[in-house]
Amino acid sequence: MDETWPTARRRRMPSRPDVPIIVGGGILLAVVLMAVLAPLISPHDPLAQVLPDRLKPPAWLAGGSPNYLLGTDADGRDLLSQIIWGSRTSLEIGIFSVALGAAIGVSTGLLAGFRGGWADVIIGRLADIQQAIPFLVLALAVIAVVGSSILTLVLVLGAGSWLYYHRVVRGEVLAIRERPYIEAARAVGVGDWRILSRHILPNIAGSIVVIITLQIPQVILFTAGLTFLGLGVPPPTPEWGRLIFEGRDYLQSAWWLTLAPAAFLVLFVLGVNLLGDELRDRLDPVRRQRRR
């Protein structure tokens, strides 16, 4: 801070290129394709152990072989194939749990925002209670009792992420509820259900899409974290978090086992976050003007 005044300039919307959309969308698309086409593009069976080829470094390092582009793990399994199949597990969990969380949170948000009253109070208290328990703690507790499986993960992650949707949807419904066009619809005798589905939901769909986009990488990171603790996706299903976890013992001698899957995870999350942030900025007229 020197003599010049700090200024918060209000800038016009610059005609900047769609870099975040292209980069973020490209990464998302690439990972989705990788997951869908896993059986076709995976160079090896991800679980096939070739013991003579254990701990091969990536192809570009001394001792690497073009047969194993990213090297092999301690059991002689091809790392690239495991990463490719791992994207499938991660995406599956991400998509299903986000769908579940969105379904719950959007419903409670509509109910609380539109009806208000007791429903709003009770759901609000439930949200406060859940807010007080760290999500990881709740997930650990449930997994301790019922054991870990992909289904458990989807249910736990879905039930854990409804809060975000609930808060945003409730807030937006509260704001829209009093608009003249809703009043007009009511005046001509349109029922609650129709007002919700035809007049309110389409108006908040954008926000929901944004939260979904931002939640998918969150959920995948979270699953990876749980798997890293040994409590997520049960072995031997390949999953990014477990690959990172299993590479831990070889951090010094075979760093690629940890860093290669970690790079995929980070790049994916980075890309989707970029896309989500950009979508949010574009959908929000205030932010659009300010262009943070």
């Binding site: 990488p217 990171l221 990876a224 974290g225 890293f228 990172i244 976890f245 940890t258 970690a262 995870l265 980070v266 999350v269 980075l270 976050n273 970029l274 942030d277």
Partner: peptide
């Protein structure tokens, strides 16, 4: 942006 993408365990 990077801080949000790099998980603690990595």
């Amino acid at each position: 942006v990077v801080g949000q993408a790099v998980p603690g365990f990595v």
